[in-house]
Nucleic acid binder design. Structure first.
Lengths: 337, 337
DNA sequence: CTGAAAGCGCTTACAG
DNA sequence: CTGAAAGCGCTTACAG
């Protein structure tokens, strides 16, 4: 067989150079058995001289472990996405795991990544906010492939990593109450998202505890996207009794609301105190800068990855993690610089 | 040997069920040789019945091809990042390639991903805007591993995919001139970045062509980041003869400049026309919305990935691709709604 | 502590 | 058109 000019160096060459068998090279590679110190040194030296990098493929085949994790992200332009990859990647790479990334277009269904991940024999999975079918997750789990779900809740028994939307919404509402606001309105995000539901619940429960309630005319529908907050706010400004506080389900809509309020000749926070959610760059940029809540996205990725790697080492898969969402106080709520 | 309860199904089981040898199964898998239609049907049926997914590991080992691409992204919170992964991923997954993602902290040096990628025997590499050493790229190329560089220029002979900063800067400046502006100032991004240099060159060359020049007092240093545009703009407003147009190297700084201008009691675009670069969400949000340029990030990823896959099929690696950057006209330049 | 050998799940000439 | 066999580069009992 012709020698490939620049082929990778294999375990055989290392063994030959160190004058040992490949078993021994493998042993120092895996640090399992005892190897005589001197032999070890020789092998190590040979590996270094030849710049040997063991083939993950051959290893994976022999060990029946691919040392890689599958990672699926939604197709949508999620501003948080970068943070979660970093969180995941920062734990996987140091642990010697590769990260196989697939972005899942919402329409396609599940097959795209399931096929790829099965072929590649991924050891574990981290799925971010996508449309997973429960059956698929169970299928993986049955094969002892741990799965962590981020921002996606499809069963109490599955390992899911979420953010405490409810708690942050309570805190934000509390804060509005502390500023003396009593007629607090809500600008909703997309109806069907759990985030929206939880934030709304936080608002309503906190109001209820304070003996307040939220009449229908102080509830306006938005869709998280640009522009919707503007129209929602206009609707909220119709009734004679205007709200004195507004909780928007995200910063984008809060920023839109700001414009609608200003156009009406009213001031934030003097006439209407306003809070958003997410702490996107825009939030600190509008005037006045928004009081909002910052989701620990990086941490979400980190913890999900740690859980999967832990499970691979035999630890039980933590069932449900809910990370606290700190609120960040700026000026739109009435706090001064 | 104990039968693993949920082990993956292998080629042997398929062969047995289809009553052929594994060679034949392999043949229908790879569609290389002729296989009798009826045999093929039997094999296909068996594969389907057993839900067979060939092991990418065993295949990679036998074929000496991993069918995966390495992908490195910078650690920084690049708002464009998501778009480029999507661009890359949208071509690799359909082509049956996996994408191994690593984020490269600037400080660490190159070893982190070089080691991982060598171990995993990636077939090709896409490197985004990171600090690659030329030696590393050459090392890969010598092993016949095609490398595409995105937004990173370290040699005329390497396949690099860039965006036409210069052309867009020319167009933007041209546009300012068309609005009758003659005293055009520049708010620079970080000195050392090629993007900044190219945008600046575009401005200066276009001014020169129009018989204009850019005196030192109309050149202010920024660093792309929040706040720097504000101070830069204040400096530009010092001289008695104020600029009547400002080109900021990115939207963030342009937005900052907007505030500084307004604080000075001047209006955009009436007193000073303003343009930015990048078309981040903020750009369309500030008042007046910014005229700017939109980089084709997704396309950058797509083309780089296509080039690498092409090279893997024997095509020559396209040396240099520069994608046009359309400018997006809004109101900060003086155009009306 | 160390080596020979079988095996991981495929592919690929080589025969037939 | 199809099968037997060697090989891809490792790991892992099994002997010694």
């Amino acid at each position: 067989m012709r020698q490939h000019k620049h082929a990778q160096v294999t375990i055989d060459e290392v063994a030959r150079r160190a004058r040992v068998s490949i078993s021994t090279v493998s042993r120092v590679l895996n640090e399992l058995d005892r190897v005589h110190p001197q032999t070890r040194e020789r092998v190590l030296a040979a590996m270094k001289d030849l710049n040997y990098q063991p083939s993950a493929y051959a290893r994976g085949l022999a060990k029946q472990r691919s040392q890689t994790l599958g990672f699926v992200i939604p197709n949508i332009s999620d501003p948080f996405f970068l943070e979660v990859v970093r969180g995941v990647e920062d734990v996987t790479t140091p642990a010697g795991y590769g990260l196989l990334v697939v972005s899942q277009p919402a329409a396609t269904g599940d097959h795209r990544y399931m096929k790829l991940f099965t072929e590649r024999r991924v050891d574990g999975l981290v799925l971010v906010a996508i449309d997973v079918r429960r059956a698929n997750v169970e299928h993986m789990l049955r094969r002892h492939i741990p799965v962590a779900l981020i921002q996606q809740d499809i069963g109490d028994d599955l390992a899911t990593f979420r953010v405490d939307n409810y708690g942050a919404a309570c805190a934000l509402t509390e804060h509005l109450l502390e500023h003396g606001r009593r007629r607090i309105a809500y600008i909703a995000g997309s109806d069907h998202t759990p985030d929206n539901a939880e934030r709304f619940r936080g608002l309503r429960d906190t109001l209820a505890t304070a003996g307040l309630h939220l009449p229908p005319e102080r509830l306006a529908k938005g869709d998280y996207l640009r522009g919707s907050g503007y129209h929602a706010m206009q609707a909220l400004l119709q009734p004679a009794e205007r709200p004195d506080g507004v909780f928007a389900a995200n910063d984008q809509m809060a920023s839109d609301a700001l414009i609608a309020i200003r156009e009406r000749g009213l001031r934030v926070p003097e006439d209407i105190a306003l809070v958003g959610f997410d702490d996107v760059p825009l939030a600190s940029y509008v005037i006045p800068p928004l009081t909002t809540a910052r989701q620990p996205i990086y941490e979400l990725g980190r913890q999900a990855a740690l859980a999967v790697l832990g499970a691979l080492d035999g630890a039980p898969l933590a069932a449900r993690v809910v990370l606290p969402v700190p609120i960040v106080i700026r000026h739109s709520c009435g706090c001064s610089s």
